[in-house]
Nucleic acid binder design. Structure first.
Lengths: 132, 132
DNA sequence: CAGTATCCGACACGATACTG
DNA sequence: CAGTATCGTGTCGGATACTG
């Protein structure tokens, strides 16, 4: 029931900053933050947008909900519930969230740009190990 | 036996950049990169240095070895083995590694600086949920 | 000193089903 | 539409013991 009961004990027990790090660098945290940097999204809309991104795969509703919830709890994401039926909920970044998202996007961009170099390094490493 | 067999299937199977992200943002990847940014370290020396840092806790030899190995495989860390007895091994950052470390350090610094705000947000969130 | 091997528990993540 | 509940699996990370 509690939002962060899970991740807390593994490595975030001491050092609450580490917990925040894990939220923003988590599998879907990264994707969500980058998406919300461009604009506000609704739940299903965000889900579809992520799924449509090549090579990122689909998010399950559970994981998206969980990710948004921990980001909201940390004060990085704002959840705006319009009192209408059918329900209409909008997610956006807070100022704090925007700061985080910018850094995460930079990091994601970096890994993207260095991808070739890293893959080459991995091949060389594996080859050196196998060959002797 | 293979270095990255483990982490590969969870979320890095597609999207090899994500794998790199997970290595550098991993529990000990962050700490190691930041440490190596300041200077070269030997294995046990690095282990002690990390353990000495308040609120970071101790690394097990296994995790430190694993972390260094994946970072080396990605071409971020250079491992220099001196052919002497007893063994003497030095770890340092490559140019690629330094680029990564700088970004990680910035992110770590950010979460550190924003810690109070995040904790306040968490308290408010939890209170709002519990109270009504 | 510099690691590797093995066992183990906690939990992230996913698939599926159900609710207001 | 916007989620929560439940179950199953892989694996991350720690403890301990052992090797060159």
């Amino acid at each position: 029931m509690t939002v962060s009961a899970g991740v807390a004990s593994r490595s975030g027990a001491l050092c609450p900053q580490r917990l925040t790090m894990e939220h923003v660098t988590s599998r879907w945290g990264v994707v969500v933050l980058i998406r919300l940097l461009e604009r506000t999204y609704r739940f299903a809309e965000l889900r579809r947008a992520i799924g449509a991104t090549e090579s990122v795969g689909q998010v399950t509703e559970k994981m998206l909900g969980q990710t948004l919830q921990s980001l909201e709890r940390d004060g990085l994401v704002h959840r705006d519930v319009k009192p209408v039926v059918p329900p209409h909920v909008e997610y956006s970044l807070t100022d704090l969230g925007r700061e985080a998202a910018v850094q995460i996007r930079a990091l994601a961009l970096w890994t993207d740009e260095r991808r070739e170099r890293v893959e080459r390094a991995r091949r060389e490493y594996d080859l050196a190990r196998a060959g002797g």
